[in-house]
Design a binder for these strands. Structure first.
Lengths: 329, 329
DNA sequence: ATGGACAATGAAAGCGATTGCATGATTCTG
DNA sequence: CAGAATCATGCAATCGCTTTCATTGTCCAT
């Protein structure tokens, strides 16, 4: 009465184990009647192939690892979903690992995953390039939102969308802006800041830089407080979570949005649509991002050693209610 | 130059594979010098034991599955963390699966996980008892926040904390309450509603029931709108996410909290501390909940067939800024 | 009839680890 | 100093599956 194996089934059906295996993996090689007997017996016995045994012989775990720096950040759940869906469609499962915001943990987890997965997707804004490269040596790996020359990566590029955001605000009469910078170690943060700076310079408008702030709600509140110390009428928050914090802080101090200040976020997290006022932001193409990452990883797994792909997906600007005409003098 | 195995190492060190295996698993059985040579060689070659091979012979995957109904709900990330931490300490990895709010998916995923994990933790408010029981047949399984006689479960019981919440509001002069009910299929929702009803009856205060509302921010806004249609001065929201929605809706309509209405949430999600006003709520002992679930599951795995444990951890009431003295007449 | 092509199946060799048993070397005991 | 006990190690079976190669039987063209 132990777990059924292909042998139990084989015996029960009077065929060899090989035939049972084939009945599942290459059904066209097995005659219809036999195949049916086998599947019937399998169902009856509640047979489940042992993935360990299969993995041992095929060398594939049918599993990919996903490392995120902070699962409590609302940016990730959507990504996780997208990745999970795509992976499932390709016959793989996903092992999610939360690095709890520690660079060391990110790298450590890559090492731990090595033996259990076919490859990993790493959303690792923190760890050093060298550590990352080293950790990924010999393991198919795709970087998310962080570029590294010799490792494949899938990035969301918001540069042009942020330009659009700037133009949108400019059109509404804003001339003085604040940049609420994100974590200094984060590639995304650096890139966004840079895009905004470039735009401001090109437009010839005033830009005061504040921060860096942590990418949390609380960080956003601090950013909001800092913003009030300036004359800027519009602010670019590093991301939506930060922006929500800013909104909360402003609301708490009785500052009207967009009446007195306009705020734009980034990422288009679920919350962005639902807060009041709803957030003007830049939507990251989460589904694409996740799906692409899985596909790139799959390619990497099937043909290791190819030139690393670098894919860049553009974000798109969405105007909502947290931005509006400049008020005052 | 293929992946190093215990054989490569054995050969390199002039010992047998068995010795290499022992050097890692039962080091006390191997003489010190040999052990060191082996570990040195292993490090040098970058050896990683194949978990498939080990799993095949030991019959253990060192992996547990975790099924959550909706990873975007901020309740779960903290739980996931706690579970992951505990599992790691016990030498297991966690496979997280998001059921995307579908009962069918919950059950389907349990089936898929069967062959890859030693057991599963299921946070499944939705699927039917029968389906759940069937899906878990022969697979160690622990239910989270949902009781079922014949399956072990770990629950967070907020009954007494909700009583405390009621008393807190009563002390502040509130006499007319609203219950903003959560999803009708959810055990937690039913239980909370019941606790609140009981308290109100016992206290002899007025209680109007609204809902059910979805456990999302948007659902909360609807609840907030509904609340304004009543004369209740204090409201019990199903959970914090709902409560945040209520706050947003009230703020949007210029209703002061706690000036005009008091709101209490439940779960003490991260956001609860950071919104304005910060949320009076009932904190679920997430870390305990997660750790306990893993421990119960581990016991279940090691000694299947024991009587199912049912563990209940109490939530505790925390007063913050979303509740205050009753205003008006 | 005869041989070849083709289809359906079986036998058996691994995949990389763990582990019970056997063996040889040391040390202990009386 | 003989034999027992102990220690370190090797041998070989095993876990459940996939896959190559060989085998058997059918059928068709010659």
């Amino acid at each position: 009465m132990s777990k059924p194996t292909i042998y139990s089934i084989a015996q029960r059906c009077g065929v060899s184990a090989a035939t049972v295996s084939r009945a599942f993996n290459r059904p066209e090689l097995v005659s219809a009647p036999v195949r049916e007997r086998i599947t019937a017996a399998a169902r009856e016995l509640g047979y489940q192939p042992s993935s360990a045994a299969r993995g041992l012989v095929t060398g594939r775990a049918e599993m990919i690892g996903l490392i995120v720096p902070d699962i409590t950040n609302p940016f990730f759940p959507l990504l996780v979903r997208a990745i999970q869906r795509t992976a499932e469609r390709m016959g793989s499962s996903v092992m999610l690992v939360d690095a709890e915001e520690s660079a060391a943990a990110e790298v450590r987890h890559v090492a731990q995953l090595r033996s259990r997965v076919d490859g990993v997707i790493v959303a690792s804004p923190r760890s050093s390039s060298a550590a990352l490269r080293e950790a990924a040596r010999g393991l198919p790996c795709v970087l998310l939102n962080r570029p590294l020359r010799d490792l494949p990566s899938v990035l969301c590029d918001n540069t042009s969308a942020l330009f659009d955001a700037g133009e949108h605000l400019h059109k509404h009469g804003h001339r003085s802006f604040a940049l609420l910078a994100g974590p200094s170690a984060s590639w995304a943060a650096a890139r966004r800041s840079q895009a905004i700076r470039r735009w401001a310079r090109g437009r010839g408008v005033e830009l005061v830089e504040l921060g860096p702030f942590r990418a949390t709600f609380k960080g956003g509140r601090q950013a909001g407080a800092a913003l009030l110390g300036t004359a800027a009428t519009a602010a670019f928050a590093f991301d939506d979570l930060t922006a929500c914090g800013v909104l909360a802080e402003l609301a708490g101090r009785g500052v009207a949005v967009p009446g007195e200040r306009s705020v734009v976020g980034c990422d288009d997290v679920l919350l962005a649509r639902t807060v009041t006022p709803s957030l003007t932001t830049v939507t990251a193409p989460m589904d694409d991002l996740g799906a692409t990452a899985v596909q790139v990883l799959t390619r990497q797994i099937e043909a290791p050693g190819g030139a690393p792909e670098h894919i860049r997906l553009p974000g798109v600007f969405v105007a909502r209610d947290s931005t509006g005409p400049r008020s005052g003098p």
